[in-house]
């Protein structure tokens, strides 16, 4: 393989990994607070369709992004209310959110299927994009990819180095102790779930405004679920999420790579690759039961009722 092809492949892996990065970062923060939201796929689809509709009707992709973010957070609020206030089962509520979002997005998007819009254009960053090799892989993307880079670095700092990160982790590890020292557990969880919604919306917007750019039913094709596996893969660490997202991006474009090498394998079989990779990764990571218990937020998936004592 010549270096041009390698650059193109890595460039495409970043592009394909970006929606995964957005949504997995959101879910990471949500899980850090102790809440497991299986509704990622539904929130992402709603973000994609609403973002597309807004951009299509106004002709402004930026407005599309804002609309998608708002939609994602509304979706996450439905989930947060049911899980945090009503005390509904997190697994069932998350599934409901995904089923609801899948249906609602197909419903509201049925009029614009197949329409196209002008999405975001790539911007080559001055100086940085001139760096040989790396410049062409990392710094000739569109604005959303750059914001995903920034978002990952900001979160790395916030989670690991600030008081906010500490509060978040305290709530996720031991909500009763956090409550005892005066942290408003439910408020923190609400904010964390909402952040997940915002990122899912953003991720959806990336799919419908940049990646394709159009709206097709179910266009996220399980990325919301893969993101959940990514969080486990990353052992709940921000930096590893970034690595994982791009590895999965690479797995998703493997068919292009193999075509480039002149192999001929059915594209339908290659389309399975990201899902098979997810299973394999899950098995490898989780096989060590003790390690996973150590890494996962201790109260993950468990409801917190401030009226009860631990």
């Amino acid at each position: 393989m010549d270096s041009d092809l390698i650059i193109q492949i890595l460039f495409a892996a970043i592009k394909t990994g970006t929606p995964l990065l957005f949504i997995a970062l959101g879910e990471l923060i949500c899980e850090k607070s102790g809440v497991l939201n299986l509704g990622q796929e539904g929130m992402m689809l709603m973000g994609a369709v609403v973002g597309f509709l807004a951009a299509y009707s106004t002709g402004n992709a930026g407005l599309g992004v804002i609309a998608a973010i708002i939609m994602g957070s509304i979706m996450s609020l439905i989930f947060a209310f049911l899980v945090l206030h009503v005390g509904a089962n997190q697994v069932a509520t998350g599934l409901a959110l995904t089923i609801f979002g899948t249906g609602l997005s197909a419903f509201v998007g049925s009029s614009v299927v197949g329409q196209t819009i002008e999405g975001f254009k790539p911007i080559a960053l001055p100086l940085l994009s001139d760096i040989p090799f790396i410049g062409r892989i990392l710094f000739q993307h569109d604005i959303l990819v750059y914001s995903s880079f920034m978002m990952a670095f900001i979160l790395m700092f916030v989670v690991n180095k600030t008081r906010i990160g500490l509060t978040l982790k305290a709530v996720g590890e031991n909500p009763h102790a956090a409550n005892a020292i005066g942290i408003k557990v439910l408020r923190v969880r609400y904010l964390a779930v909402m952040f997940g919604g915002v990122m899912a919306g953003l991720s959806g917007a990336y799919m419908s405004l940049v990646y394709t750019p159009m709206w097709v039913e179910n266009m996220t094709a399980g990325r919301g679920w893969i993101a959940l596996a990514l969080v486990v893969f990353a052992s709940w660490r921000v930096g590893r999420i970034m690595l994982g997202a791009y590895l999965f991006g690479l797995a998703s474009i493997m068919h292009l790579v193999l075509q480039g090498l002149g192999w001929s394998i059915s594209p339908n079989l290659l389309a399975m690759l990201p899902y098979v990779a997810t299973v394999v990764v899950m098995v490898i990571i989780s096989a060590d039961k003790f390690k996973e218990k150590l890494l996962a937020p201790r109260s993950l998936g468990k409801p917190f009722d401030p009226r009860q004592m631990a």
Binding site: L38, V91, A221, G222, W225, L228, A229, V232, S266, N268, L269, A271, M272, Y275, V276, T278, V279, M282, V283, S286, A287, K289, E292
Partner: peptide, 25 residues
């Protein structure tokens, strides 16, 4: 291997779908 059943069963839904599509093609 202690892997998360929710996620693996979902992944197997997608794998089955593509296997089926491959078979009819």
């Amino acid at each position: 291997f202690n892997s998360n059943l929710i996620l693996t069963t979902i992944m197997f839904n997608y794998i089955a779908l593509y296997l089926l599509i491959w078979a009819v093609h």
